[in-house]
Write a protein that binds this DNA or RNA. Structure first.
Lengths: 189, 189
DNA sequence: TGGTTTGCCTAGTAGGGCTAGGCTACTACC
DNA sequence: GGTAGTAGCCTAGCCCTACTAGGCAAACCA
């Protein structure tokens, strides 16, 4: 029988595509095997288990997102950088809802430390250079930024904003204005 | 054979408890049946399917949260109300992680419209009365608030803040300060 | 060219979702 | 207080997914 040429990389990519199409929760080893015209048992030669697959998808997504953010951030500073970062983040989440959802799975500490998530975190901090915040305000601001972005995107995806007619794009840009305002004038105790 | 006294209400409550213990994704009809000392097939007399169960848990959680928020909000205004609301929200999510996660499932429009989610939304708007915002700023502000709360709580739960030593409680209260500041001085175009 | 490794296979276990159809305990009504 | 109906549970059985063990053949490599 001919070999299908399955590799972990191809499996991860196909899994990511599948996630975007049907949701991470429906990314099954069996479905992936069908996609490769192979029996599901065969994939366990490449994958430890189903969770392993999802972790790999998450790591792929983190890397892709970090790349996009890096590209968006190049040559920008201040509010420009904030908006570019935010839009890169949201656009990625909307183009790749499954990958984005996969990113939210709880990685164990060493995996997380080795992931592109740290690059992402560094870039978030880099944005704040334009706002002249020192610790611990910087950490608090990073956390607020991340919360706002993730919360907005997440609620947008699960339909949390549907009940109000106002276009979400408008609320998004006003939210970024507000975030810029509060970062510019971070309340000191 | 004796009757187990299973009702939809008891199933929903037990399902909610199960969700808090093992996560929504592990709330199975089979596990619930075991908990009631009953065969899984029997539950389909009370439940349409597994999704139906999770929706019920979500609705229960929305109602509980709305109650808590209402209690927290009583007699408060301005920043006081904002902080009370936010803490009620976060505390509920931390006490009931499974229920909170269940709340995020995508309800179909009519179910959502009939849920306690609308009470929640009304109360969020009520907070903004203390900040004198008119439409569409109000909607934008509500969305930003909700995003920040949900994002923070969500990231906190999935370990998104673990890589920095700063206590999350501190970042939380500073985030609320920032939110109050920006609502007080909402940037106009 | 023959041995080893690599990549796929079949077969089988366990568990979850769900349906069909059967039996029984309770309820209501005459 | 007997009996018809129904509500609440059951068994049996289907399909799907995760995962393991062990077999066989293609590819590689000495």
């Amino acid at each position: 029988m001919a070999r299908a040429g399955v590799t972990v990389e191809r499996l991860t990519l196909a899994g990511a595509e599948l996630a975007d199409e049907v949701g991470v929760e429906n990314v099954t080893v069996a479905a992936l095997a069908r996609r490769f015209g192979v029996k599901d048992a065969s994939l366990y030669f490449h994958l430890r288990n189903a969770h392993d697959l999802r972790v790999r998808i998450a790591l792929l997504a983190l890397a892709e997102l970090a790349d996009r953010v890096a590209a968006a951030l190049a040559g920008r500073a201040g509010k420009d950088a904030l908006v570019a970062f935010a839009n890169a983040y949201r656009d990625y989440a909307r183009e790749h809802p499954g990958r984005y959802a996969a990113m939210q799975i709880d990685l164990d500490p060493e995996t997380a430390a080795a992931s592109a998530g740290v690059r992402h975190a560094e870039m978030t901090r880099a944005i704040l250079r334009g706002y002249r915040l020192s610790e611990p305000d910087q950490t608090d601001a990073v956390r607020m930024m991340h919360s706002t972005f993730h919360g907005f995107v997440s609620l947008e995806q699960t339909g949390g904003f549907r009940h109000t007619p106002r276009p979400t794009d408008d609320s998004w840009s006003r939210t970024l204005d507000a975030l810029d305002a509060v970062l510019t004038n971070w309340p000191s105790r």
